[in-house]
Nucleic acid binder design. Sequence first.
DNA 1: TTGTAAGCGTTATCAT
DNA 2: ATGATAACGCTTACAA
Lengths: 338, 338
Amino acid sequence: MANLKDLAEHLGLSQATVSRALNGYSTVNAETRRKVQEAARLLNYRPNTSARRLATGRAGAFGLVLEQSDNLLNDPHFVDFLSGFTQELAAQDLDVVLTSAEGLATYRRYASTSKVDGFVISAPKVKDARVAALTEMAFPFVVHGQTEADAPYAFYDIANERAFLDATRLLLNLGHRRIALINGPADTMFARQRLDGFHKALAEKGLPPDPRLIHHATMSEDEGYALTRQLFAGSEAPTAILCSSTLQTLGLTRRLREEGLEMGRDVSVISHDDGLSSMKTENFSVPLTVTRAPIREAGQEIARMLVALGNGASVETQQKTAPVELIVRASTSAAPQE
Amino acid sequence: MANLKDLAEHLGLSQATVSRALNGYSTVNAETRRKVQEAARLLNYRPNTSARRLATGRAGAFGLVLEQSDNLLNDPHFVDFLSGFTQELAAQDLDVVLTSAEGLATYRRYASTSKVDGFVISAPKVKDARVAALTEMAFPFVVHGQTEADAPYAFYDIANERAFLDATRLLLNLGHRRIALINGPADTMFARQRLDGFHKALAEKGLPPDPRLIHHATMSEDEGYALTRQLFAGSEAPTAILCSSTLQTLGLTRRLREEGLEMGRDVSVISHDDGLSSMKTENFSVPLTVTRAPIREAGQEIARMLVALGNGASVETQQKTAPVELIVRASTSAAPQE
DNA sequence: TTGTAAGCGTTATCAT
DNA sequence: ATGATAACGCTTACAA
């Protein structure tokens, strides 16, 4: 409960000197610093956060707003992201402040009220209003993913298009022609990117996309199940399926079993794998062929970018597209002969 | 970007009056207040958070620390909790600050540095050190669950013991005698409570617990799978299984299929269901019999409790054990004849 | 190398 | 009902 004043008095020094000693200013005598540090430890001194923030004008925290209507944030992948993000910031004594809201007003308020020094934008839409607003306010932010914007902005993305291009090519090379895509929500950029990769691969073989085989859905077990059921209901069932998340794939697996179909023999499956600790694709009954990019690392890297931005780094230097691994396991095989 | 001073000058009033007008003090002239509010809106005035915090001594935020070693927080159930917690606080203009740490030091630092006005303690251990420390510091907190403590403390728990007592009774009444339990981590209180309920029900029938049928695990799909495999590997396979989370049950389901066993016919299953939006137990291939308690509500209620505590409510008034529903669906049936 | 003192933007205590 | 003015606890010019 000791404050700076107490500590200074105790030491017979000015508050300024004590503050400098503690904050690592070079102009302070080594011996003085030692004494100050010792006394600080002894008196259990902790600088008051609000006071420091008021004086420096920095919040020492980065914000993340949970969009209420956005079911993406109700999804399990988000915990892993958050875990990486928080851990990286905590290592530098920075906090993450979470709030829940609808629309842009909250971003404005948190920025102008200096509650946070920057935002991370999760699950960006193809054309994301938050990015436009924050850019206009000249307030720091990093997008987890990408969006269509007029000005450059900081982002961390994974090579979604390339990943799904490669995955689709793999299936095509195995002889598959009727390939289904269970994608993320239609308005998200990552779903768009994956769809693009998918289309590109088909185009390379001169194959037209079949809309009946392309579906957008939330990242839930249910949807994976329901869509797989639907895919096999008609006469033109796919021989291979691309799936956007492990959770969807779990539902897919469930349905496949009910259809009496064996994954990796009757139907080939490639899933995107965010590297969640609670669902390991290598341990699936049929080990899954996946496009893999640990989402936890996204959290960590975005934290670093936000810090860099805060230290004056330009937006152009904070743009990264991480590669996605294609890991071939047992869920893919040659297309069945007609 | 206008601050209080600007606003006061603009209005020809003192900062004090403006502040009072804006903060709803009764002693201010109605007409004055109107003018002040209008000007505030016009100049887009937002009180600076740090300044306000420094002046009031309140952080306007509640903390949640992610224990790095705790795999419970890497689990999907946590998002739903967080979502409810955050939303409820946001409605009252309060933030949640997240940090990542190991051990008690962080709690001490965040408390003494007035970064937060209170904590939520997630995934409490049977005897939780955090609860003891915070109690000793007389710093506000609410436990999500319960723990063994020397002094009263605020908590929100669900009736875990009762739920698993009822669930086990149901299975026993259906004639099951070899009932397995796939529980949460052994050091968590909720796992202990569920085990107690399980034991109690067995004891009512004079049945001794069989250690080979009782397992503790993390809340992952993998573990559910691995343990189910193990359960059916020996000669003394169970006819019914109690499972602690939907995710484990997903793994269990996967393995059961591989064993050629049909849920609800060959093996009865009851799962605990946290009401996650991404995994709906009613939509399972065999709709699941569950003990159900939406974890999102826990988040909301704990937020309210924290606020109450902040407003001076006594710890004794902030203790709640929410009921758990037992919903019988198709995954349970009479035990197969020997 | 250290000290003095002026902020930072509020709220809260006294007067008036 | 309103205004001065003193906190709140720190950082940071500017002096010494």
